[in-house]
Design a protein around this nucleic acid. Structure first.
Lengths: 356, 356
DNA sequence: CTGCTTTTGTCAACCGGTTGCCAAATATTG
DNA sequence: CAATATTTGGCAACCGGTTGACAAAAGCAG
């Protein structure tokens, strides 16, 4: 009888052909309204605005909703409001264990606050990353970029349309969550110094990576403080293969301890050195970065500096949700601490042969 | 002048305050219609239906759309049609490398066909899985379940609402993609037999896992064919720790070769055996399953049976898209082949000490 | 040039919630 | 008990596309 919404009757004939709606597609607020004997808008209010309707009506509506197994239609809600209760997370590489923690942390935080997380990967390409970001931006309330490859301006441009939080990088005017690498690096370097090492090589990551610069800076500063010599070696790619390829340079450098941009490099390096007959850690100590999945599969297990990635994910999501819920002032750069995970690949140098 | 949509004129005064549309909220088909001098519905048709409008109008509209940088509003489209151009993939555990390939494969296939993939994890819990599935089902066009933990009936129930494809499992009436384990297992068992092994232990996975049963069956059959004795050992959990814990049982069983439900078990087992002083593969051979990330980090590197997970993901997504695009008949169970990846953890038994 | 089929574009109703505005109902106060 | 302040619920417009029905325009045969 409702004056406007009578059309569903008209296609009752077609209903026989199509799989109908037979209990399927869930109930709407109109159904609830009818059942509870109130206006649809009242239902809407009861279900979203806190104390906008009387307790009595509230109960009535909630019962009806429960009875009909009502679930809001996210699209219908998103259309007028723009709110989607969805966050996007873009990572450089899903298979890179570094991101697991981030994904997990962000996912659980989002879910806990009744948001859905959409995940995309950029395959380490700045272009793909930007495309993915643009595509998702229309669909989500906010965006988390983990170790973004795109340049600052693009990031700011995205941030102008929707709230953005970056992880593992700092961009002026965009809130970020970054590990404070210095604590972990300090522990590692002190440990190396205590074990008699005098020269440390840092195997760098991709030149355009914000993070590799921070890490190198940290290593350099810590080495200076501990009066260790240190040098930086470029790597071809931040992967196991890249680590293998840099092995010769490492040996040639005369360093007795190596710190790498990430664990994959460390693992490749260790494999290649061992294959060449060098004992780890007797002849050379290796310290990775990140404590990825599998870092303890090696023999010896890899000493590494762990960034609490899950915490990064959690913090980033929390930050983003705060912004979305109207927080004006958010700390522009949140720091999470890193720590040394001491395993078998680093230790005391066996006997002589390192430069006096 | 259009009778119904005149409201935007009314706030033309406010237009001065608001940043107009200046890059902000994107153009609508109404804007295009105005610019091109046609009716909005014509714009809609030009942009979605193939040759529904004349070439001339088509061009006119496309130019206008390009000029305004138009992008369809996914919600507006989803609301009346139900189509979202989105697929959901639910995996048991994001950090389990087994799923990387699946995710990658599904993601790239979806993206290539202009669909977006939403990812959720179930944390290995049947309940969480079902909840996640139900939640996403309202938002997506179809669902891929990788190694689902929930029971057949729940899966069928979901499949009744939206198209579903399962990976690593078979459910009556639901299309699936499963690795054909027999090829890989056959290769592995033949290899073990050729290396003088006579007794093989299979370390099983979670009892409710469909896959562990398939693998055990395959191992049993292959061993029978090759006249090897074989036994099944339960494991506590399908993880590295679970592998460590089962080491004593393995030794006690007297088997000289072990095949495990997955690589994590194999790695844990190997670590524990080595820690107890048993040489691998001199005293015991170990064959894992899946060839996960990190399987070659160990010393010796792990021999394992690889399932082409990326292919599974690709096939599953393709299958799902076919169903969505109206394919009536889809092959109910697509098989992808497995293969033995021979590395260092398996080989010839050194000397005596195995049962005659 | 007329009559009929095929294109092509317009109208208007709808998808399912949200929200500003207003009036009825209820509570508070003098 | 009247008068005013406060709740509470209803109305209706709107978000931005989609689509069935229909009429105008164009194409074509006779």
């Amino acid at each position: 009888m409702s004056e406007s919404r009578t059309q569903d009757l008209s296609d009752s004939s077609a209903g026989a052909r199509k799989p109908v709606r037979s209990g399927k597609s869930s109930a709407t607020i109109y159904d609830i309204a009818k059942l509870a004997g109130v206006n649809p808008s009242t239902v809407s209010r009861a279900l979203s605005k806190p104390g906008r309707v009387s307790a009595k009506t509230q109960k009535l509506i909630e019962d009806a909703a429960a009875q009909l197994e009502y679930r809001v239609n996210p699209f219908a809600r998103a259309l007028p409001t723009g709110r989607t209760n969805t966050l996007a997370l873009i990572v450089a590489d899903i298979t890179n264990p570094t991101f697991f923690g981030i994904i997990r942390g962000a996912e659980s935080t989002a879910t806990a606050r009744d948001y859905t997380l959409m995940l995309a990967e950029s395959a380490e390409s700045a272009d793909t990353e930007l495309t993915a970001a643009r595509r998702m931006l229309t669909t989500v309330d906010g965006l988390i970029l983990a170790s973004p490859r795109m340049d600052d301006n693009h990031i700011r441009e995205l941030a102008r349309e929707k709230p953005v939080v970056v992880i593992n990088r700092q961009v002026d005017g965009v809130p970020s969550v970054v590990p404070d690498v210095n604590k972990g690096i300090g522990e590692a370097v002190r440990n190396l110094a205590a074990n008699g090492h005098r020269k440390v090589a840092y195997v760098a990551g991709p030149p355009q990576s914000w993070m590799t610069a921070r890490r190198w800076e940290g290593v350099r500063a810590a080495c200076e403080w501990s009066h260790l010599e240190c040098i930086q070696l470029p790597s071809h790619k931040p992967t196991v293969d890249g680590g293998r390829q840099v092995a010769r340079d490492v040996v040639a450098s005369g360093a007795t301890a190596v710190m790498t941009y990430n664990d994959l490099l460390a693992i490749g390096l260790m494999q290649e050195l061992q294959a060449a007959g060098m004992q780890v850690p007797d002849r050379i100590s290796i310290v990775g970065f990140d404590d990825i999945f599998g870092a303890d599969f090696t023999t010896p297990a890899l000493t590494t500096i762990r960034s609490p990635m899950a915490a990064c994910g959690t913090e980033a999501a929390t930050l983003l949700l705060e912004v979305l819920h109207g927080a004006e002032e958010v700390s522009p750069a949140l720091q999470v601490e890193t720590e040394l995970v001491l395993r078998g690949s680093s230790g005391r140098l066996l006997a002589a042969d390192h430069p006096a």
